[in-house]
Simulated assay, not measured.
Amino acid sequence: MLSSAGLVTARRARVIGVRSVFSSLARISTRTAASPQIPTSIRIAAVFTRGFAAAATRSATKTATAATTKKTTATKKPAAKKTTAAGKKKATATKKKPAAKKAAPKKKAAPKKVKGRSKKVVKEVPEDLKLFRKAKLLRAKGLVKEQPTGLPASVWILFLAKNRAAFGDVSNVADISPALKKQFEGLSPVEKQALEDEARANKVRNDAALISWVTTYPVTTIEAANRARAELKRMGKPTRRALHDPRRPKGHRSAFTFYVSERYKSGDFDGVTSTAKISAMAAEWKAMSEAERQPFNQAAEADRERYRVERASLSPSP
Rank of each mutant, 00 (worst) to 15 (best):
T32H: 08
V8N: 06
D175N: 09
A255I: 03
A26E: 13
S154C: 06
F48W: 11
D197A: 12
Q183C: 01
R31P: 00
Y217D: 07
I211K: 09
K203Q: 13
S212P: 00
V272W: 02
R205W: 09
E146H: 02
I28Y: 10
L2E: 14
F22T: 13
T49F: 14
L232C: 12
S289A: 08
A299V: 01
N226T: 10
F48Q: 12
R200V: 06
S279E: 15
G236T: 10
Q294R: 11
E292W: 07
F48K: 09
A225D: 11
P178V: 05
K96F: 08
L232W: 11
L232P: 13
P316L: 07
N202G: 05
R43M: 12
A64C: 02
E301L: 11
R229N: 07
K130T: 10
L180D: 07
Q37Y: 13
K106P: 08
R50K: 10
A287K: 14
R12I: 06
R241G: 14
A60Y: 12
E262C: 01
K286V: 15
A85E: 11
R205A: 15
S313H: 10
A161F: 03
R12Q: 13
G186K: 13
L314N: 04
S29N: 14
R133H: 13
F52V: 14
R117Q: 12
P238Q: 06
A64D: 12
V15A: 14
L158G: 05
E305I: 13
E198Y: 02
P36T: 13
P189R: 01
Y264F: 10
K88S: 12
A55I: 13
S177C: 01
P39A: 15
E223F: 11
K97P: 00
R306W: 03
T275M: 09
Y307V: 15
G87C: 01
R311A: 06
Y217W: 11
A242N: 14
E310F: 07
G251F: 09
E290N: 09
I42Q: 14
P98K: 02
I157Y: 08
A10L: 15
S20R: 13
S274G: 01
Y264P: 00
A276C: 00
A300T: 05
A153Y: 06
K70G: 09
R19I: 15
S118Y: 03
